[in-house]
Nucleic acid binder design. Structure first.
Lengths: 336, 336
DNA sequence: GACGAACATGCCACCGGTGTCAAATTAAGC
DNA sequence: GCTTAATTTGACACCGGTGGCATGTTCGTC
């Protein structure tokens, strides 16, 4: 099949160990002779088109240099800002000699093979870690990192400071004179720590200003429209959980002829690229997605290196910042 | 470390081969005795928490059951409709016992390790196959499938019938009375077969109606705005290469107070989810993205099974269809 | 009950690296 | 030049399955 170290060893007149060591790079080459053989071996390897067999290496070392991307929600990992996180993850891992493997977790048992069969050295969990997986993984002592999920405090994790983001967004609207500020989370969004965090930040800012929260967690697109647009006390400012809500809401308001921001101000979340081309461009809470991926990669690899589960797991936080664009403005009239 | 077939064999009082065969499932169990041992072995395996070591299996069989996702453009694989393709690819592969590995190809040599080191059994190429990779892969006889790339006719591929899509879109506008129809491709879009195909379809439809093409391939966002909106002969209908163009154009027209569709009609491409919430909802050319992924998976696995490169490579085509929504309407006035 | 076919089972080499240990070689010190 | 320490090199077991081949067992048939 392909060239092995044995074939090179034979032609170079040295042992396979020597070839392996030279090609792997752990040889100091202080001797004149060793330097000469190293040169010869390397020349032969290059000439013969040698490539280390990664399957054999993985077997013998017990490491695949693969990291699993564990996720349950198909849409989530690709959606909006998460694609940048994944991308950054891939790049960061690659630069350290690791690569990322898709590992969707569903009702089947395909994930078990990968996670428990020793196919991956560690895993990066997106959004949420199903209990069945958590249990299985714990036995195998597979290093994991949680991204955007604080459900298991015993694992290292990278999170966005959602409280601060929602707080800043709410403050922004209050500062513009808004008194009825709504937090809008679409019903299809699965329960998730970022929701509660954003809720807390939102409530904290309102409480500080002595205002009452008016939250919405609506069922269908139609209902979302109705409740917000035609509700008894229409809010003058809405903070959307994500771009999905921003998009739906902007669309609904447009249909009803309600203008943004003169009648209703909207703040989004995540700073998805296309939202800056909305009409009007969306004021939104953004954060450095690439940093999340990079930190995530760092934490898994750290977990693999040390494999010391005793120490307190790291918790890294990424700070968001409010990006003011055109969808927010002064409250139309006092108590409009 | 973890349980091996040898430990099970010892406790069951049989040989390791027997255990391996039973747990792998290739045993017919017609004998009463073999059925009994099979039961016993399986019970022991389950009790001891046995999991086949995939690293060992990959090594011994020379197959990793990994497929590489080869791509050069970060943004592309996640963008719009492609996420559905990737997702479907992952799922289709998973159901056949394979999994997908991110394999970004850049100037570094990280991809070489994966592609040439026997880390993957096959590859799915997105958008374009760099020559250096094509060359390296050819030597190794690694089965590849091209998705949305017709640059190498010697490889199996899955493509969307872009000609038909653009033709239908153009016909649609012509049917609505439009006589100056533009094809808009943003300058940042890399040269790609789908561009030329769409161009051809667009031109063919115009030629049939005896109309002259007016194409645009513009430099920056500002210029796009200017050329289309303030050009000497403003088109009444624009076909956008993708959602990026649709988004930019819609935004530009809004800024200039030009209404869609009464003054300008817009047709998009790819039917990205969020475009149905544009103002107005985008008329667009859509296609079954999941099907592309499924067909892609099928073709790679087929290539792995047969490993017969002699036969003519398959070329599967997915038909697009025009989805008419609110962004297209009758041409305002004759020769507006 | 004997005979051959069909099939279960065991033995063992093999995949291609890694890493340990002992032997061989070299450099350093006096 | 001789001894000792440092370092390179080689031999070899090992990782945990797989699969070919020989052996042993069961079954059907006459």
């Amino acid at each position: 099949m392909s060239v092995t170290i044995y074939e090179i060893a034979e032609r170079a007149g040295v042992s396979s160990s020597t070839v392996a060591r030279i090609l792997r790079g752990d040889v100091r080459e202080s001797h004149a002779r060793s330097a000469a053989t190293a040169r010869r071996v390397r020349a032969l390897a290059s000439e013969m088109g040698y490539r280390a067999n990664l399957r054999a290496r993985a077997f013998s070392r017990g490491r695949t240099h693969s990291i699993g991307l564990l996720y349950t929600d198909d849409a989530w990992i690709f959606e909006g800002v998460n694609q940048h996180v994944v991308n950054s993850l891939v790049r960061s891992l690659q630069s350290e000699g690791y690569h990322l493997v898709f590992c969707p977790i569903d009702d089947g048992n395909a994930w078990e093979e990968i996670v428990l069969g020793g196919q991956i050295d560690g895993g990066v969990v997106f959004q949420s870690l199903p209990p069945k997986v958590a249990l299985a993984v714990q036995e195998r002592r597979l290093p994991l990192v949680l991204l955007g999920d604080n459900s298991d405090p015993s694992l290292p994790q990278v999170v966005v400071d959602d409280f601060a983001g929602a707080y800043a967004a709410t403050k922004h609207l209050i500062g513009l004179g808004h008194r009825r500020v709504m937090l809008f989370v679409h019903e299809t969004v699965k329960p998730h720590c970022s929701i509660t965090e954003r809720q807390s930040g939102y409530r904290a800012a309102l409480a500080e200003a002595g205002l009452a929260p008016c939250e919405a967690m609506l069922v269908s697109e139609g209902e979302a429209t109705d409740a917000i647009v035609r509700g008894p006390e229409r809010p003058t400012g809405v903070i959307c959980y994500s771009d999905l809500e921003s998009t739906l809401l902007m669309h609904a308001l447009w249909q009803f002829g309600i203008s943004v921001p003169s009648e209703v101000s909207i703040v989004g979340f995540n700073d998805v690229f296309s939202t800056r081309f909305m009409t009007p461009p969306l004021t939104t809470v953004g954060f450095d997605a690439a940093k999340i991926g990079a930190l995530g990669a760092q934490l898994v690899l750290q977990g693999i290196e040390t494999s010391d589960r005793a120490q307190a797991p790291e918790l890294l936080t990424v700070k968001p910042k409010l990006i003011v664009r055109g969808s927010t403005g002064p409250a139309a009239s006092r108590d409009g």
